[in-house]
Simulated scan of single mutants.
Amino acid sequence: MIKVSVMSTDVRNQSGTSKAGKPYSMTFQTVWLHTVDQHGKPNPFPEKVEIILPKNAEGAALFYPVGDYTLAPESLYVDRGGDLKLSPRLVALKPRPQAAA
């Protein structure tokens, strides 16, 4: 499991016109990935990554609230060429229960 931390709901929008002449708009959110090295040992610090946010039916970006997440199974897919690709979609991790005082 790859843990993903969202520390802020700030987003960045990038829009313009593609080479084909079609308008585009993408919204990004910064997240922090808790990765491991090639031997499976956790890295000492999370890594900063920008992900493209999904959109709702009206085209508005759906940002992730502050919290801890993992990658959803639908984040991984095989493209037309048979290559494994990643399009990050996050699933909230359940908070740990607080010990009774």
Rank of each mutant, 00 (worst) to 15 (best):
Y69Q: 03
D79A: 09
E47I: 04
D68K: 14
G21C: 04
L53H: 03
P44K: 12
I52M: 10
L86C: 10
V4I: 15
A20Q: 15
A61K: 01
G81Y: 15
P46G: 10
E58Y: 05
Y64D: 01
Y69L: 09
S25N: 13
T9I: 07
A100K: 10
T17F: 03
A61S: 04
R12Y: 08
L62Q: 12
Y24E: 04
V91Y: 02
P23R: 04
R89I: 10
V49N: 04
M7H: 14
M7D: 14
P46I: 03
G59V: 00
S18E: 09
W32G: 14
L62V: 03
P88V: 06
G21I: 04
K55P: 00
M1T: 11
E47N: 08
S25P: 08
A57W: 03
L33K: 04
V49T: 11
K3H: 11
I51K: 01
A61Y: 01
A92E: 12
G81R: 15
S75F: 00
K19E: 13
M7T: 11
G67Q: 07
T30M: 09
V49D: 03
N43P: 01
T30F: 05
L84Y: 10
R80K: 15
Y69R: 02
Y64S: 02
V11N: 07
P44R: 10
P65D: 12
V78S: 06
F45G: 02
E50G: 05
V31I: 11
A99Q: 13
R80E: 14
A99N: 07
V31E: 02
V78P: 06
G16E: 06
N13G: 11
A100T: 13
Y24I: 06
G21S: 04
D79H: 03
V91C: 02
A100F: 13
L86H: 12
L53E: 01
Q29K: 08
T35A: 07
V91K: 11
K22M: 04
K22L: 07
A61P: 01
A61G: 01
H34V: 04
E74A: 11
D79L: 09
G67W: 06
Q14R: 14
Y24G: 03
P95W: 05
T70L: 05
V49E: 07
L93C: 15
G21L: 07
A20E: 15
R89S: 01
N13Q: 14
